[in-house]
Nucleic acid binder design. Sequence first.
DNA 1: TTTTAAATTGACCAATTGGTCAAGAACAGG
DNA 2: CCTGTTCTTGACCAATTGGTCAATTTAAAA
Lengths: 214, 214
Amino acid sequence: MTAHEPTRTGSQKTAIREENERLILRAAEDVFANYGYEGATTSRIARQAGIPKANLHYYFATKKDLYRRVIDNIFNIWLEAADSFDACDDPVEAITRYVDKKMDISRLNPKGSKVWANEIIQRAPIIQDYLETTLKAWTDSRAQVIQKWIDEGRISAINPHYLLYMIWATTQHYADFGHQIQTLNGNKDLSDEQYAQAKKDVTNIILRGIGAVH
Amino acid sequence: MTAHEPTRTGSQKTAIREENERLILRAAEDVFANYGYEGATTSRIARQAGIPKANLHYYFATKKDLYRRVIDNIFNIWLEAADSFDACDDPVEAITRYVDKKMDISRLNPKGSKVWANEIIQRAPIIQDYLETTLKAWTDSRAQVIQKWIDEGRISAINPHYLLYMIWATTQHYADFGHQIQTLNGNKDLSDEQYAQAKKDVTNIILRGIGAVH
DNA sequence: TTTTAAATTGACCAATTGGTCAAGAACAGG
DNA sequence: CCTGTTCTTGACCAATTGGTCAATTTAAAA
């Protein structure tokens, strides 16, 4: 709980608080993504949110608190996308949907993905508990689903974990390495058509690669 | 040129200088990878190299100089690996070799890969020129090779760039997200056997995915 | 209106940062 | 040996950092 959080019973937030937290979180995501955790300064986040630094610390006691909230957000977005994996039992459709959603997230929310990547690269100093609990549980459970597909002969025998890593790596690459992709694309962002094509190529390579389609 | 570099004609370095630069660069790679550019402190790098901070600044005038040298290293390592792409005209063999080498680098030199990833995530503030010159030239040239394979009907029609991104993303993931992989592997590093299997799965999925093997 | 709580803010602080400097130590060639 | 260069290092500095605080204003409740 934040030090300055109102002490009223219940956790209802004022409209002012709600709005300001939203502004701060949006600015924080941007600054953390572009400068890393240490490179991000609370005064820069405050400036970008359009408020004095002291006011930022009124809403978020420490930089770490703020950071954790930003990571929370992207992690929950991914978990929601992951539901598409469960929505159906057909490997082709499940993987197609999952890749589709993750590619969309990389396009619409690249900053969150970058903050996550940064955190993992630096060995998850803040959110190691997420990895060991929520992420591990989700991963192992979906690996079982994939293993079932293998046992049923619907896809070829590969290690389910390495398939998941491949999907994560490829889809998140379009967010995390978006700047490199943009540069190699003649300093232009991928157009809607290009992005759609990338999505199609990625999906096809994976589906054919695991023998789900021929 | 470094401010304190000896002014003698020719660029021959003392043995002492050679050795100390090596020590510092090794420590710098580690610290930059684990803390990011801003999070890394010159005093920490110096401590890890076993020398006083003032001595570090005798060899490398600024933190930025040091950082650029570290990035230079990993970039050259990758460029060498990329030669395997040219060594042979068969798509199966070329891609197999390239993936193999890149996976090896991810295992043997994960820190360099992490520093690079960090730099790209933060929009390449220091090494943008590399992306626009060397990397762009290399990429476009190899995309042509891949396009030729497509035209000859040896692999299916996909966008060569998106295939390259997929290879980069997947192989580098084993370095950049190594900590996540380790956590999901029960907090144990991938064994030699596991890593070999991952390499095999990655290679097979890609080769089958682009219709190079059946 | 009065009263109480929430929100705002400039001024401030201790700690840390990248980098400097001057004085000396070690080393090389003659 | 001597002489000039390379190397080493503790002490130091201006700038920046995350975070605090007390004083004030705004909003909500009674």
